Simulated assay, not measured.
Amino acid sequence: MPAELDLIWKDFLDHMSSASVLYSIRKAVITGIPFLYITENSALSKELLRSLIDQAAKKAMLHKKVTYKSVFVRNDGPLWVYRHRFYVPQEKMFCCGNLCTDCILKNK
């Protein structure tokens, strides 16, 4: 799945780069945690930037079994930093014998 996540990241960064209100965007992985460094062209509100991130992430994840989490870290003038991660949701992989509603035996 790492190759699939790489494609999702590429699509996401391409969608973000196409936004005219952004000057640049780059992904940096620091101690295993991916961060977005976003530089704006014009004054952006936190809500508008969050909306751009949400829209680009949804486009990149379309028809894929992946979700994301994006957390605001800091803002310094035109530079915004977010902790952003795409990940595969956890699924039950075994039967525990408790007859759970999401039991893998019922799905086969």
Rank of each mutant, 00 (worst) to 15 (best):
K65V: 06
L79I: 13
M61Q: 10
L44G: 02
Y37W: 04
L7T: 09
K92G: 02
W80F: 15
H84L: 14
G32C: 07
V71F: 06
L79H: 09
K59Y: 01
R50K: 11
N41M: 13
C100D: 09
R83G: 02
Q55K: 15
V81R: 04
F35M: 01
W9F: 14
T67Y: 04
H63E: 14
S42M: 10
Y68M: 05
K92R: 15
A57W: 00
S20G: 09
L22T: 01
V81C: 08
K106I: 05
D6P: 01
Y82S: 01
E47C: 00
L7D: 14
V73E: 08
K92C: 11
C95A: 09
T101Q: 14
Q55I: 14
I25N: 03
F12K: 00
C103Q: 08
R74D: 10
I53G: 01
R85L: 11
E4I: 15
N98V: 14
P2T: 13
H84N: 08
H15E: 15
L52K: 09
S42T: 15
D54L: 12
N107W: 07
M93Q: 12
N98C: 12
P78M: 03
I38F: 04
Y87W: 11
C96D: 14
W9D: 06
F35C: 02
Y82C: 02
L79V: 13
P2R: 11
P78L: 02
K58P: 00
Q55G: 04
K10G: 01
S20Y: 05
W80N: 02
P2D: 12
L22H: 03
S51V: 07
C96L: 12
Y37K: 06
N107K: 15
H84C: 07
V29R: 05
P78Q: 06
S45G: 13
E91M: 08
V71M: 07
D54T: 13
K64F: 00
L13F: 02
S70P: 02
I33R: 06
L7M: 13
L48E: 14
K64Q: 12
F72V: 07
I33T: 15
T101N: 13
F94R: 10
I38Q: 02
T39G: 00
S18K: 14
K64A: 04
K10R: 15
M61G: 06
L13I: 09
D11M: 10
